[in-house]
Amino acid sequence: MKFSYYPGCTLKTKAKELDKYARLSAEALGIDLVELENWQCCGGAYSMAKDEIASKLSSVRALAAAKEKGQDLVTLCSACHNVLKQVNNDMTTNEDMINRVHNYMKDEEPYNGETKVIHFLELLRDVVGFDKLKEKVVNPLGGKKVAAYYGCLLLRPSKIMAMDNPENPTIIEDFIRAIGGEPVVYPYRNECCGGYIALEDKNNAIKKSTLVMESAEKNGAEEIITACPLCLYNLNKNGAVELPVKYFTELLAEALGVKGEN
């Protein structure tokens, strides 16, 4: 099965593993991820200002490119996923923006939100299926206690992201179970790690990331997984708890026995 794939800039630099292990795992699962040509940075954060349009154009280009290929667009980084999905929603609901984008881009076939954006986790759940994934696991986690850290961007705003129950999600826990781990549910898994505030106000990020990690640890986690490079950075760098934090794709590749490949 072929999908368009939008890696985003961080996955090309500081979060290479997130990308690498996803590609290896997809291959093992018979999924063909075709990286979009000439994709541009999504901007990292979706601008909530309705009249902020220029910064959303790069997302529209990516979405339109996937539409041209007739493929669903797979994302991996939580932030890219959030931005692309919200911009896609704008392209069906924000009339002023739609008009201005069309006027500016002057595409022969104007883009109107046709592309379906799916996160890699949704690919696993809805296309591969966690049951099927379980069958393909060769190195199960052996009951390791893994805490899922959702952060903010995968789940919210839920009426647009529509991935899971934003207050009591299960997708990553189900994923953990599928690869042989024991999910640890803890209350801070959808609380903010501090995000980009780390740049300006490190202490603030330390407070927030520590709270998340302490909560995971208290509930018995041996390891935390996430889909977001900035969450990973904050927990690793600013969280004052010694607990390994990894990308979920790393555990996936390990379970599928493809981690060592290159």
Binding site: G8, C9, T10, T13, K14, A15, C41, G43, G44, A45, S47, S55, C77, A79, G195, Y196, A198, L199, E200, C228, P229, L230, L232, Y233, N236, K237
Partner: peptide, 27 residues
Amino acid sequence: HLKADMIPDLLDEDLPQQAIVTAFRKY
């Protein structure tokens, strides 16, 4: 709120691009 020449002092080697881009977007 954030000027380009302020960036180098704020960086550390692990900071993901995502944070910098987002900060620019916000600031």
